[in-house]
Design a binder for these strands. Structure first.
Length: 180
DNA sequence: TGAGCGGCTCCTTATATATCAGCTTCGG
DNA sequence: CCGAAGCTGATATATAAGGAGCCGCTCA
């Protein structure tokens, strides 16, 4: 089974924003804005809640959600806030989509990463333990990238859908049991 | 020769994973 | 006072975003 640990989604409002003024109106700690450090304005409704990064152009990113649903409800809350503040006319955006799922998985066995690099195919893997302890696996024809660790723990990232993640994990489980 | 522009890299954020170096802190 | 233990930040992965800075190229 795979568990979603992070969802990155982005969208766009059809307006140019005055981040300086918005940050002042919303106030800390919900809004944080330091244009010398980064051009985006950060919005976080509660402590440990996902982060919304808003740009001058009206585009925005939501990071740190644990599910697609959480991303969408965060987006709704964000649109309602801007609508209530009369920043936008209706609580609507031009578009909104999940861009990246970060998931963890468990293969329930210790892995010999050197052997696995050969088994999975050297052209699809990168393993330099002195640089990073995980093996990087890029399954052919798949959206995502997999990080495999000697403990059997796995990280799958780069997919735009949960289906893609599960597809990768299923074929990974199969391939690993075949080559080891 | 220099201005301008396009393309590229880096910065920042979230998040799991593991391993290293370097630093602080604590106990005997 | 020193070793051990704990903590921090780096390493790598993906992805969106805007801005800064850099490099190379073209044209006047």
């Amino acid at each position: 089974m795979v568990e979603i640990v992070n969802v990155v989604a982005s969208g766009a409002l059809n307006v140019e924003l005055d981040l300086e003024r918005l940050a002042d109106d919303i106030g800390e700690p919900v809004a944080r804005h330091d244009p010398d450090k980064y051009p985006g304005m950060y919005l976080r409704f509660e402590e440990d809640a996902p982060l919304i990064t808003v740009y001058r152009t009206g585009k925005f990113i939501i990071t740190g959600a644990d599910s697609e649903d959480e991303s969408y409800s965060l987006r709704e809350r964000f649109l309602n806030l801007f609508s209530d503040m009369d920043v936008i006319e209706e609580p609507e955006d031009e578009w909104f989509a999940v861009q990246n799922y970060v998931c963890t998985g468990e293969l329930d066995q210790n892995l010999n990463l050197n052997a696995l690099a050969i088994g999975l195919g050297l052209e699809k893997t990168e393993y330099e333990p002195e640089q990073f302890p995980g093996l990087i696996y890029r399954p052919e024809g798949a959206e995502g990238v997999v990080l495999l660790f000697a403990t059997g723990k796995v990280v799958i990232t780069g997919c735009r859908s949960v289906e893609s993640v599960e597809e990768i994990f299923a074929s990974l489980t199969e391939t690993v049991s075949e080559v080891l």
